[in-house]
Simulated assay, not measured.
Amino acid sequence: MVVLDYGSGNLRSAQRALQRAGAEVEVTEDVDAAVNADGLVVPGVGAFAACMQGLRAVGGDKIIDQRLAGGRPVLGICVGMQVLFELGVEHGERTEGCGQWPGTVARLHADVLPHMGWNTVRTPSGSALFAGIDEGTRFYFVHSYAVRDWQLVTNPPFQPPLVTWANHGEDFVAAVENGALVATQFHPEKSGDAGATVLRNWLRDIAG
């Protein structure tokens, strides 16, 4: 298991959480290790533009492409989820993302920002990531930007992603399950037992 080191924070907490969930984890920017690992975790904190700059500097966008082309699991966390979308808009600045999913990351319409603390989520039927987690369980969020009003067009025979939603002022995407590509806007590594269950579920799916 590799946590991709591209200059973003939160690397070691992600590593420790995965280790507690039973994984052997290396934090590295090495391309070969990142491409060939059983699973790749892309964490992220801070600004969308800065994360994309760091990701491209180590070839992270190409690593993600290469892994997904081979059906190899990738987990994005917080801004590591946001950069998987087409576009980020912050302070009027538009930054191209990895483009794995259509959609724009934009500032939430809410009275209080950042959205910081514990919040419930609405999970879709058939979710593997949230298996065994009770409705009403809270997860830990820290963000001011998110994907809102995400409209997906299904292209048969491909199945649409499973989308989990949360609300802070308005609905936003809290998690996505899309084959080998999975991501959470919340921080599973800071979400206590519920976050640990999410990580174990992801690791279980990798193990097959």
Rank of each mutant, 00 (worst) to 15 (best):
A174K: 03
T95M: 00
A128C: 10
A47F: 06
E177Y: 12
H168T: 02
V25K: 13
P161A: 13
H168M: 02
A131W: 04
G70N: 14
F130M: 11
R94Y: 10
G103Q: 05
L199E: 07
L84Q: 09
Q15L: 14
V176P: 10
I206L: 15
C98R: 02
I133M: 05
D111C: 08
V41T: 06
H115S: 08
R138N: 03
C51G: 13
G208D: 13
D171T: 09
T184V: 01
A23C: 02
G117P: 04
H143N: 14
F141T: 06
D65W: 00
L199R: 06
A110T: 07
R94E: 14
A174D: 06
F186L: 03
F158G: 08
A110Y: 07
H187T: 09
Y140G: 04
A14F: 04
D134E: 15
G7P: 07
T123I: 13
G132A: 08
R200T: 07
R72A: 11
S144K: 09
G179N: 13
V74E: 09
N119I: 01
D61N: 04
P156W: 08
N201A: 10
A131N: 11
V42F: 07
I77A: 03
D193T: 12
N119S: 14
L199N: 07
E29Q: 14
L181R: 15
V83Y: 00
R20T: 13
D38N: 09
K190M: 13
I64C: 00
N10W: 00
G39M: 11
T154H: 00
L181S: 14
A14R: 04
L162D: 07
W150K: 01
A180V: 14
T164K: 01
R107C: 02
R200H: 05
L18K: 04
K190Q: 12
A50L: 10
V35E: 15
T28K: 03
P157N: 00
V153K: 11
V79S: 01
R200N: 09
P43A: 00
K190T: 07
S144N: 09
W165T: 15
V42R: 03
V121G: 10
D38G: 14
W165D: 07
Q185F: 02
V31S: 09
N119E: 02
E26I: 14
R20K: 12
P161M: 11
V58G: 01
A49P: 01
T197Y: 06
F130L: 13
V121Q: 08
G88E: 01
P102L: 06
V182P: 08
M81R: 01
K62S: 00
R200A: 08
F141G: 04
A174G: 08
V121I: 15
I206R: 12
Q19H: 08
T154S: 05
F172H: 03
L203A: 00
P124F: 10
R107Q: 15
D5F: 03
A131C: 10
L181V: 10
P156Q: 04
G97N: 07
E86G: 11
G126P: 05
C78I: 08
P114N: 08
T28V: 02
W101K: 07
L55P: 02
D65L: 01
V35T: 06
